[in-house]
Design a protein around this nucleic acid. Structure first.
Lengths: 233, 233
DNA sequence: CGGAAACAAAAAGTCAGACTTATAAGTCAC
DNA sequence: GTGACTTATAAGTCTGACTTTTTGTTTCCG
């Protein structure tokens, strides 16, 4: 995804980043730049660039005379798409998926409400198109096509909200939806009720009914929460 | 804030980052590493490290034979605390403040609902303490002390939600609250109604009333939206 | 024995220079 | 005009020497 192998330092990151987020180097661990450079068989310049990037993600901290220490999990920039991808690829994928789904359930209803007010005619059309695409592929094990339209649908909602912070979560939602289809539930055709909800959201947005769009979207995300058994009794 | 001047490349970033986010180099602009190095009077190694960091924030893209091109705003990692700080310090501070306040209004009610279910006894106590602190300093132009407790209050809510993604927004909320007090409204004593709401949220969380905690917090954030005139008629 | 000051070592940080590589763009033949 | 070839360019990489900060130790005096 995105840009694999954009230079030597990129390949080092693709190896070291996941190792850190996976807890292979637990918080407090101390790494030495020179050793890492040897281990990855790159020059120190390249290694330093990689460390700088990890530092900007708050995954590590570099201090003189000490080395590169791994920071505690709670300080990581967990919204960095790269970090999210690393964590989704690693051991605490389930945990990450839950966090992100809870985040979704907070963001998407609000985004849908705003979209109902601000969406352009073109965006309304796109939304309807996506919803219809979901309907069209909701039967007969056409999961790939269904997913495609599902992702597009949520992206349009987030973008149409007019809020840049919401819009940037499009990739995250895409990752969650894709991951869910691949590894978790959804071995068979999607829940017809969920499909209907998407269609109704598209209608609500087109008819500028913010309250209804928000409530319907909330029902969608509640469904997602239930799929992951996130619900205290 | 955080870590100013952590090395030469850090100082370059503190200068170049804000310049980019402020639109001083518009998207599509092409920078040359060597020129930048000369301009900032640092070696290319240092300059390269700085560029790598900007690249990891998706602010720029570095390509061979082309140079370092500034990416369009919609691709920036707008959740990166560093980027947020740069933007808040620059020209589109108002726009950024609005985006973040809308984000808050989506996140915090959900976080409060979860906190009501998951908060530890200690966190409940902290919450009450913060709310009482707000009450104690809500009169007599003790804005600094009031703000301190306000920030702490929202941090506890976000942390107690048990969701790492929510928790990491503590810094962002702090930034928004601080900024609001400094530059925007709030020249005089805070709205008594808002203070009361905080107290009631603390009570709701302690009594495990998730629905009430969520609704009350929503009222707080709606108030914040109104302060910034974010409300379509 | 205890604390302060001087010392030494370790690791990151910085710099300069030479070399490699990818690639955009221009050139030429057809 | 199209395709293959050439060239210039800017990023990418590596190496080695040097600087700076910080920590841990050692020494010395009270």
């Amino acid at each position: 995804m995105s840009t694999p192998g954009r230079g030597l330092h990129g390949r080092v990151l693709d190896s070291l980043g996941p190792a850190i987020t996976a807890g292979e180097y637990p918080p407090g661990s101390i790494l030495r730049t020179d050793e890492l450079a040897q281990h990855f068989e790159v020059s120190r310049s390249v290694m330093r660039e990689a460390v700088r990037v990890l530092e900007s993600m708050h995954l590590v901290e570099s201090r003189r005379r000490v080395g590169v220490t791994v920071r505690p999990k709670c300080e990581w920039n967990v919204y960095d798409p790269q970090v999210i991808r690393w964590r989704l690829a690693g051991a605490d994928r389930p945990r990450q998926l839950r966090s992100l789904t809870v985040l979704r359930s907070a963001i998407e209803p609000a985004a849908a409400g705003l979209a109902a007010r601000l969406a352009t005619a073109e965006q309304c059309a796109e939304l309807t198109e996506c919803a219809l695409g979901m309907v069209a592929h909701s039967r007969g094990h056409r999961l790939r096509e269904y997913l495609f339209h599902d992702v597009a649908f949520h992206r349009v909602i987030l973008t149409a909200s007019g809020n840049e912070m919401f819009a940037r979560l499009g990739d995250v939602v895409a990752e969650v939806l894709t991951g869910r289809t691949r590894h978790e539930v959804m071995f068979e055709d999607p829940d017809p009720e969920a499909v209907t909800l998407h269609v109704r959201v598209a209608e609500a947005v087109r008819s500028r009914d913010a309250v209804r769009a928000e409530e319907l979207t909330r029902q969608i995300t509640v469904g997602a929460l239930h799929e992951l058994d996130i619900l205290a009794p």
